[in-house]
């Protein structure tokens, strides 16, 4: 038992970092370790977490997805527009998810069939989709309105169940599903295999193009889900929503110990990575650190954490 615990801690250094970090912050600021603040952190983390889960799939195959922020924005705009026009909230959500998945699949197609580097392909799609979002919204926020559908819709982002915000449930479900898929299904195994050695995976008779398309589709779908949560919470969609979110998601994945080269890492690390970023943001806010310094500190924490991890792996 003791040995198992020790092994767990060595393997999950980021978890140790998170715990130590939380202890320090709660000593420095008594407002940190309260139920309402913890729920607050989790709710705020949910957006980045959901995106980071999709990003984990992509990065495990050795790819990268820069388009998630833009996909978040367009799906938010679509869902807000549909709800404001009086559509059923459920149908609007499905439509927005479908758009995210389709855009993700488009990424996957360019990368696998078009044989374009993921960085370039998703950079192109990121710009394209951001441009389209601006055209679609005319650069202005779209309010979901105040209809019955709109208030039902806003529950997704602002509602509670048993005193806990709904986005937290969504985040937990997404984490759970993703963990299970990566750990226990064929698809998960193929994702790791593809990330380790694409050629050997092809030679083993596996259609790697299909896996690539799938992971980008998952990433697009989850980015759209994040867009729906944000839009529901604010009851309006911002044309510039999600700008830079791809970087937070990548940071969460890498902080969690997943290798950018692909093939190693996993969802548990990403959970921790996203929480580290969430706790960092929250604690700096609690301590009234100016947002300029917040960015600076965030950058430093990411660099130090990754360097520490790298050193230990050697």
């Amino acid at each position: 038992m003791k040995k198992a615990l020790k092994e767990f801690l060595i393997k999950n250094k980021s978890f140790v970092v998170l715990v130590i970090f939380c202890i320090i912050v709660s000593i420095v600021n008594e407002r940190f370790f309260t139920v309402s603040n913890i729920l607050n952190i989790l709710r705020q983390t949910s957006i980045n977490s959901v995106i980071a889960v999709g990003m984990t799939f992509v990065i495990l195959t050795g790819g990268i997805d820069l388009s998630v922020g833009s996909i978040l924005a367009i799906s938010g705009a679509v869902v807000a527009a549909m709800v404001s026009q009086g559509n059923n909230a459920f149908i609007a959500v499905i439509a927005a998810l479908a758009i995210g998945a389709a855009l993700g699949a488009f990424n996957g197609l360019i990368i696998s069939k078009g044989k374009i580097q993921p960085f370039i392909a998703t950079l192109g799609v990121m710009t394209l989709v951001r441009g389209y979002t601006l055209v679609f919204t005319d650069g202005k926020p779209i309010s979901a309105g105040s209809s019955e559908a709109a208030s039902a819709f806003s529950n997704i982002g602002a509602g509670y169940f048993l005193g806990i915000p709904l986005p937290i449930y969504i985040m937990i479900i997404v984490f759970g599903l993703a963990y299970y898929i990566l750990k226990h299904t064929r698809t998960g195994r193929y994702v790791y295999s593809l990330g380790c050695n694409e050629e050997a995976t092809i030679y083993s008779g596996i259609n790697t193009d299909r896996i690539k398309i799938l992971v980008y589709t998952i990433s697009g779908l989850l980015a759209a889900l994040a867009g729906i949560i944000i839009t529901a919470r604010l009851s309006s969609a911002q044309p510039q929503a999600g700008t830079g979110y791809e970087l937070d998601a990548i940071a969460a994945v890498v902080l969690g110990g997943t290798s950018l080269a692909g093939g190693s890492g996993g969802i548990f690390g990403t959970v921790i990575g996203a929480l580290i970023i969430g706790v960092l943001n929250n604690s700096l806010n609690l301590m009234d650190v100016s947002s300029y310094y917040q960015l600076l500190l965030k950058g430093l924490v990411i660099l130090v954490a990754v360097l520490l991890d790298r050193k230990q792996k050697k």
């Binding site: 064929r186 193929y190 790791y192 295999s193 380790c196 050695n197 083993s204």
Partner: peptide, 24 residues
Amino acid sequence: KGNGVVLGLNIKENISLSVLQKLS
């Protein structure tokens, strides 16, 4: 090493790689 086995996966995962369909 180039395309015969996946070095970063374990023995079990390599042996089953081509037949996961049957094992799931």
